[in-house]
Amino acid sequence: MTDTFKLPPVVLRLAAFVGLLAVIAAVFQFFAPAYLSNGNLHALLRHMSVNGLAAIGLTFVIVVRQFDLSFPGVASLGAMTLGFLLATGYSLSASIAGGVAIGLLAGIINGTAIAYLRLPDIVTTIATGGVAIGLSYFYSNGTSISENFFMSGILDLNDAKILTFDMPVVILACAAVAAGLILHASRFGRSFYATGENRVSAHFSGIRVKAYVLAAFGLCGAMACLAITLLVASSGAANVSAGSQLLMPAFAAVYLGAALFGAPSIPATLAGTLLMSAMLNGFTLLAIPYYYSDAIVSTVLIGAIAIFDPKLTATLGNLLRGRTAR
């Protein structure tokens, strides 16, 4: 072993993240001078809160090495449930609880099918997502719901401030701290990671791996519905297609973060979300239509997966090393 002085990898990775963020900011600032204005930064962070909550939930599923493609559909169902409950006259907290409970239930169904019945995760979650979207049309035949919204106070979830922070940002911060504590400072987090890294050895170590896979899907569903609650609060109406914009940014955030920091984790996901939101916000500001910005986000997602793939990075590393050696 050579004991040459090296910067700890975390510092290097953090530097890479800050550098990337600076480049994105500089580019958009150049084209759209309003980008770094106070108002836009607030908008950016509020937008990040929605995607961040969904991405945090997804992080658990990715940590146990599964996929969940159902959460956008589940989130739509959660949004409509929330809207329906508010319109029927339930209190704000009861309505939110109802929406999140729907997400949790959908996640538990996913988890049961995948962990206990051993169904393939991708197909199963596509199917449950489809079912959820279908069910979301039940409440209003597909028209958006906004009755009682003003009275219920749900709009405050978007508009209120705690100290100088917007409410959505505060909610994201609380969720991130809670998820971070679970995943990185508790025995449960150890079990999630052990399950994902080597399911057999985790099982042999006495960890109830199926329960952890189930829990990951449950958390993912619930978090997606919590995320959509913020989106409903900001748009002022519950919409059957509300969840559809969650899929790409959430996956891209988790994978981009994992690529930057070496493994999926809550801080990595937050970093990834910030990068994604910084880009998406910039595109909105430049009035680039969503179909183009989606295409760009998708490109970033593919790039992140490629970097996350250890075989590919190893090949790439060897190529680069071979070049410098020559």
Binding site: S186, R187, R190, Y193, A194, E197, G206
Partner: peptide, 25 residues
């Protein structure tokens, strides 16, 4: 768990002993 370090692996079979009440490590 090959990708994880020695501490992670040695404590994995007895996480109850490795954490406080409430599950914090």
């Amino acid at each position: 768990t090959l990708s994880k370090d020695v501490v992670f692996n040695t404590t994995l079979a007895h996480l109850g002993k490795a954490s406080w009440i409430g599950g914090f490590l």
